[in-house]
Design a protein around this nucleic acid. Structure first.
Lengths: 180, 180
DNA sequence: ATCAAAACCGAACAAAGTGTTCAATATCTA
DNA sequence: TAGATATTGAACACTTTGTTCGGTTTTGAT
């Protein structure tokens, strides 16, 4: 990728996350972003379609990085046998901790729900296999949604209580979820 | 309340819920609402500050109606002893079913998260007492959030699978939540 | 070093939506 | 009926968005 593009994207990402620490997503203006990033208006629009698109791009970048390892394992081996859901979840939590700043910023205000939506797409892939053979009276559909939301909300809660370690959070999650 | 005001509010509510069946919350325009409600622009603004305020008012009206009974019981008697969390939840679910149309509309697109936010405020009041004396290693804070989100997401899932009865949904909820 | 391609700039523009104002009109309640 | 209150609708300023385009700078390959 062209060096200029990389620099521009990074400048936008930095400006955006910087603004997120001070104000809510919905009140952030594209004008503010390009002012802070110090780029031209048309440049922004040559990279991103809208503000939502920017958020989506940023989320995708973060999630691709975090989930790439775990999702590989999941497709090549048997997910729940290989190393267990618990180890996998803890691993994810350690990765997420590195992005705590961005997550806390976006999750503290509106726009957090957009983040949650993108997050859940990846979680569905991750938990998809673990739910297959639950021969209870509960729809697999419901079960998957339950796990995904449960974990996503745990992470949201975590951003408001960053004093806990990934292992502690993992503990909370598995003590309150029906799947081990 | 003045008969005119009542009529105006109802017309706006109807127009709004009607539009929600056809398009997402975020793309609905105030102009569309007042056109469909057949009221003047300034009239809308004398009733509601913004579109979000309208949604909030509508949610509040619905929730006040649904939760008033249960929240009364909760303050006067011992919540978990009197009739049990399970009966209470089922009761709420029966009430919610009456508003399935509105819920499905708002929850199917964006704006659903706003609904969820208002919903959770009431659920916190409802579940607040049930969480008090959980002497496990889990923060009561986390536990309450878990229950609230769990139930709210169950309801969201329900609006996408309205073929299930309130009792079935209640069953799903209590089989996957650590609190009985 | 050169040069064509690609990225960036930035001012100007149209379009859409927001929220306010105000004088005239209609409706309600007592 | 009369005074109070609610509604009307057009006009307005304002904000933000997304696009356009001619000119400038940077890049990467030869």
């Amino acid at each position: 990728m062209d060096r200029r593009q990389k620099k521009t994207r990074q400048a936008v990402y930095d400006a955006f996350t910087g603004l997120l620490k001070k104000k809510n997503y919905s009140v952030i203006t594209i004008q503010e972003i390009i002012d802070k990033a110090d780029i031209g208006r048309s440049t922004f629009y040559s990279h991103f379609e809208t503000k939502d698109d920017l958020l989506k791009s940023l989320c995708t970048e973060v999630f691709e990085h975090i989930f790439s390892t775990e999702l590989e394992k999941e497709t090549t081996h048997d997910f729940s046998h290989d190393h267990g859901t618990e180890a996998c979840v803890t691993h994810i939590l350690y990765h997420l901790k590195e992005h705590m700043d961005f997550m806390a910023g976006i999750l503290s205000g509106d726009g957090g729900d957009l983040f949650m939506g993108y997050f859940k797409v990846y979680l569905e892939k991750l938990f998809g296999h673990a739910v297959r053979d639950m021969s209870s009276g509960i729809p697999a559909d419901y079960m998957l949604n339950h796990m995904v939301c449960d974990f996503a909300e745990t992470v949201r809660w975590w951003t408001g209580h960053p004093e806990y370690t990934p292992d502690e959070i993992s503990g909370f999650f598995f003590e309150t979820t029906p799947i081990k």
